[in-house]
Design a protein around this nucleic acid. Structure first.
Lengths: 130, 130
DNA sequence: TTGCGTGCAAAGGTTTTGCATGGCA
DNA sequence: TGCCATGCAAAACCTTTGCACGCAA
């Protein structure tokens, strides 16, 4: 059992119901129609993050977003479009290679789950006339 | 001439004096001993960013950091330690390969300059007993 | 005079903390 | 009873905005 309270259960259900999408605390609060206080949302999220069930990702100045990643926390990372803020999940061997390289060469152990690559998505590239 | 005022000049000098390191607005203000208001710092930074002389990078919830990159903006990206928040600059062919792969395979054009890889630095790895 | 940069003060938004309350074992 | 989660209210942040002032052309 990962939650012990009505609020914890509601939060987890909500996160699952949005099907792994990234949501902000404001969205969560709205999604729960205010039935859970933001304080509690933050605290529950912290707990879930610690358990590895939820990922936090914050994009430049905007409110942090949270995402349910279930137990099967895959080695995926993110592409974030600087233009339209679109978020793309990616799992890719090329990235794993980079991680190993960094680990071997620089003694730094990357955490793909927390890593985001910024740039321009296909749509915005097209619009930019590239 | 990229600045026209005492404040703009002081800011630019400061950014250069810290030798390309990342500094927060608070650090800048302290470094200038309060001789420039934060409002002005933010506004000057915006201008410098637009001119491509300064990079902004914001790490998860904390205050954004700014970095003088002069004209010769290299293709470097960042390692950020989740534990101690240390920031490491990196230029690395392996990363370039990843970028090309992402571009070719997913139509997404990565911008290394805005990209950060999170994980644990060598020191924190050691402390964690790994 | 006109325009632009400045910076105080105040507002904005996100996140955290203090503290009293309430539920469950 | 004792512990822990809750949530209001307030604080603590970082950042932006409103507005009056001052400097330089």
């Amino acid at each position: 059992m990962n939650y012990r309270t009505r609020q914890g259960e509601a939060l987890l259900n909500y996160l699952r119901s949005v099907d792994g999408r990234h949501v902000s605390v404001a969205q969560i609060a709205a999604g729960l129609s205010g039935s859970v206080g933001v304080t509690t949302i933050y605290r529950q999220l912290d707990r879930l993050i610690e358990q590895g069930l939820v990922r936090k990702s914050s994009a430049d100045g905007e409110a942090a977003c949270y995402q349910y990643v279930g137990g099967q926390c895959r080695n995926h990372f993110h592409l974030i479009c600087s233009e339209c803020r679109k978020l793309i999940h990616l799992e890719c061997g090329e990235f794993d290679r980079l991680c190993e390289h960094i680990r071997a060469e620089h003694g730094f152990l990357p955490d793909p789950m927390r890593t985001s690559v910024y740039g321009l998505c296909a749509d915005c590239l097209r619009k930019a006339g590239k």
